[in-house]
Design a protein around this nucleic acid. Sequence first.
DNA 1: AAAAAAG
Length: 470
Amino acid sequence: MKFTDLNLSQDVLQAISAMGFEEPSPIQAKAIPIAMEHKDMIGQAQTGTGKTTAFGVPLIEQIDENREGIQGLVLAPTRELAIQVAEELNRIGQVKGVRTLPIYGGQDITRQIKALKKRPQIIAATPGRLMDHMKRKTIRLNQIQMVVLDEADEMLNMGFIDDIETILAGITSSYQMMLFSATMPTRIQSLAEKYMNDPEIVKVKAKTMTVKNIEQHYIEIQEKRKFEILCNLLDIHSPERAIVFGRTKKRVDELVGALMKRGYSAEGIHGDISQAKRNQVIRRFKDQTIEIMVATDVAARGLDIKGVSHIYNFDIPQDPESYVHRIGRTGRAGEKGQAITFVTPREISQLKTIEQVTKTKIARQPVPTVSDVIEENKQAAIEDIKKAAEKGDHYEYKQIAENLLEDMDSVTALAAALKLLTKKPDATPVTLSEVPPIRVKKDKGGKKQKRRGSGGHNRRSKGRSRRKYG
DNA sequence: AAAAAAG
């Protein structure tokens, strides 16, 4: 099947082909025709299945670019995701002239208000800031024709369901709705029942859900040795782009510091880092100014960055779902990817759970040693010499080399040069502070945790007492 | 216990 079989406008087809797409992914092939008939739709699809284009194409097609007012609304759980969705929609809508504006917290609101005055037809938003605009009446939702809930289960996990309901209640026009979610918990189902009109359900089969082109391994390792081993792995793999996932914000900060101390180009991203900085880190990671991005789970979901060759779970993820999302940042668009998870002996049972739930075998890998690194560096030095020899711009060195060979034999000279070229592993000492252990959820059959009744908004008091030190 | 999201 081709995009040209989907009854799309010339403008959209041209934009898609400029983006380098020819064949729709399974979810796109199913979702686009349904949505084009103005039907409500639920898409159960994991990360990396081409969801954004699946809702983006019908969304853009249905926009009247000559009309004023916001006609399309996409809600996403994280700011980065909102930005990324807006970028993708802008690409799809480029030829047709449909403009999408990202609306998210942490960015100067007057700047957003100014941008809203330029009349985007679509906004891609995180819930909090959108509600802020609604209260300020700087956004009108009386022209909305299509609403998309992206990563709905994650928005549920993050406690956005009430916000979503508030937002939906604030839309005065009638609209078509598309909902995307990797899982379908009851609360999502009831949300769908309440707000959707006889939705068609599109599932992407488990086969395409599992991420086949990602090599998955784990290394059993003591907490204290994690950093050394991470460095060894980075040296051996020399990844094009790598994401290192840590469990806490503090952990991420410390890892970045430690990596930089060892001379790696790494920057961190987590919820306490300013939004401007977060955006900058993503940009720098994309354009390869930095090779390593260290992140909390803020970057686990949905981020679509090309050329992420390696994922390192420095700390094992909380739950199987998080695992799937984290490793899904690699192996995108048919590329190959490697995911390596550090597991301390006490965390082995969690790894087993991940294997069971994801129905994949995660193979154990031996701990890479310093001599592995040196071996790898030797190979790299050899490659460098070969490449330089092929390049042939070393004319000025030839005479020196010949002089040198009068004093010693060629093997000795080359061996010495190779030794000099072989990088030594950096052993700058670093210490990371301890990370609090994960409390393992025990599901003692039947007793389900329930949310407290309505009005049970968990508000944090300002003067919340905090234990200082011991 | 931690993370995200409105300041």
